[in-house]
Write a protein that binds this DNA or RNA. Structure first.
Lengths: 209, 209
DNA sequence: ACCTGAACACCGTTCAAGT
DNA sequence: ACCTGAACACCGTTCAAGT
């Protein structure tokens, strides 16, 4: 029944989930599809385009009812527009989506480096920041800053997980591994970073020039 | 006079500066040194170790008289310890060092992902944050958050520069290229992000345990 | 101790030729 | 239109054997 672009993407995502980015080669992908490597290039421009599509897929379910913002008091640092809650919620959702797929942050980083603003959640983020009162160059800058933080933090988590899987390192770099699986500490670290941004946003420092 | 670890590192750095990370292969490195690829493995464990050493080299001159903090008013968001100025200065210095070497942020990111805290400037950053009044889990979290932002932002700058070099894209993705070479806009974007962090640090939001 | 030669097990991409 | 076969130009790493 011939090869389709959709099954290439689906199979690629499956390899990513099950084996990680290091195992996602065009040749391995072709083998899993029972086809010659060259056949892929009829349906897909090159590996980079494929990774870009995968990045979109990884984030496709993210946007967090972003239109709905809670105006009620959330007892913390809130921006002028009361959308601090929405921003935090969006950030946590992006992280959750990235963590669903092995090396997800790395894949999205590759796509984002080549084409900043291309990703949906980044646009949503900028919109929220605009609603919070930021003007046009600043909203974009802030959105990308938050994105860099999220991608860096989650990439670090996932790389560490890869290393643990490979047996090259134990959790926390020497800490006690109690195996209880209770929230990891990574959650707290991530939330702290997000709060840092949100607190900063409520102040709106003057930019020089 | 035989091969030395030092000249391997020096030559690798030269390839990085002149041609970028994509051209830095063990085989290319061996060729430039007039030696067989296998010879490198006598002096260096593998490519990853080499990249780690390069990351240190890229950042070696960074630490920004970090001991010296200006207590005088700097008219902005300052932490309790008056070290907001030092933190900003350190962040700008890290960026400057990364920009000296083509794909410098990418290389440092690779090293940092495998071993967070290993990098000198990250430690300096944590120390400054501790001086600013942050406790022990938080100072480390904040230091890594700032690091992720810096690496992500500069990596984006450099990837864009690579694409421009390759002629695959023009500046700013459709903007007017006036060729005046005046500060790029990237400087402003970067400073804005750093200020965001600094403003956030002066507030110290409560983290949910 | 330090390096060569040669191999092992891979890559991404292209493209004539087939159907 | 869609795929195969085969090639081109590479990778990182290992390791017997040489000096």
């Amino acid at each position: 029944m011939s090869l389709s672009r959709q099954q290439i993407i689906d199979t690629a995502l499956k390899i990513l989930r099950d084996y990680g980015l290091a195992d996602l080669s065009m040749r391995r992908l072709a083998r899993d599809l029972g086809v010659q490597p060259g056949a892929l290039y009829w349906h897909v421009k090159n590996k980079q385009e494929l990774l870009g599509v995968l990045a979109e897929r990884i984030l496709e379910n993210v946007d967090g009812g972003a239109a709905a913002d809670d105006v009620a008091g959330d007892g913390g640092a809130a921006g002028p527009g009361a959308s601090a809650g929405s921003i935090r919620r969006l950030a946590l959702e992006i992280r959750r989506a990235l963590l669903q797929v092995r090396d997800g942050a790395e894949v999205v980083s590759l796509a984002q480096a080549l084409d900043p603003q291309a990703l949906g959640p980044v646009i949503t983020l900028r919109r929220l920041l605009a609603t919070a009162g930021l003007g046009e160059p600043q909203a974009g800058w802030a959105a990308r800053a938050v994105t860099h933080y999220i991608l860096g933090a989650v990439a670090e988590e996932q790389t560490q997980a890869d290393l643990v899987r490979a047996g090259l390192v134990t959790r926390d770099g020497g800490g006690d591994d109690d195996g209880s699986g209770a929230s990891d500490g990574a959650d707290d670290a991530f939330n702290f970073g997000v709060d840092l941004f949100l607190a900063g946003l409520s102040v709106q420092p003057a930019s020089q020039s």
